[in-house]
Amino acid sequence: MEPAVVISNLEVLFFGKAVLKDIHLSLWPGRITVLVGPSGSGKSTLLRAINRLNEFFPDCQTRGSVSLHLQNQYHGDIYQNTIPLSDLRRRVGMVFQTPAVLPFSIEKNITMPLQVTVGLTGSALTERMTRALQEVALWDEVKDRLKSSANTLSGGQQQRLCLARVLALEPQILLLDEPTASLDYKSAARIESLLLNLKERYTILAISHSLSQTRRIADRVCVLRQGQLIQEMDRNDMADIRTFQGLMEAAF
């Protein structure tokens, strides 16, 4: 199987200062890769390099290449303008640390982006919304109050709504920037089990600050320090908790 994302020789600079350098990383479908590292090590920047969201921030330069290999659709370096930015960002979905619900109804949170970016209408739109909400196990909780404001949902529900919103756009790659950081234990556990269910169909790159969470969901762990990938671990390295902790401590 070929990787869905191939990052090679990636360097990202903000205001002329390198935040990431010499990054080589491949991501495969059906696997969850978790990025760990101290704050400021460039984890979010690496995530945002894959959907070109770093360009959203002032004075950012990206060198090297990030190639996507999407099923039957697209091959190529996203930094060579071979894929329109809005297409790229739909194919590469992103979930943020704090639930970024739009200040609209639950329904509109999912349908509006579909209308605007894909142009879906009518029953196709409703179907896509229902499916997305079912995928994140939110449908039963919200089906009777789709018109009420998304802000009335709990933090965990909001984050699942954000995940549903991203899934409704039918991405192939998911970028998760500490998706459970602002949630309580139970809500976090729900998101984790969702991710384990979803991983068959997506290529997932996540950031986590929790080593126990990393151990539970990761197929592969990449350690970033001062903008460089300094270590990779697979499930074998994580099998024994002591060894894993030892490796992590050495890495940090």
Binding site: F56, R89, G93, L102, P113, V116, R165, V166, L169
Partner: peptide, 10 residues
């Protein structure tokens, strides 16, 4: 809000 909508391809 802006970041999230940009990330959805707006």
């Amino acid at each position: 809000l802006r970041l999230a909508s940009a990330a959805m391809g707006f």
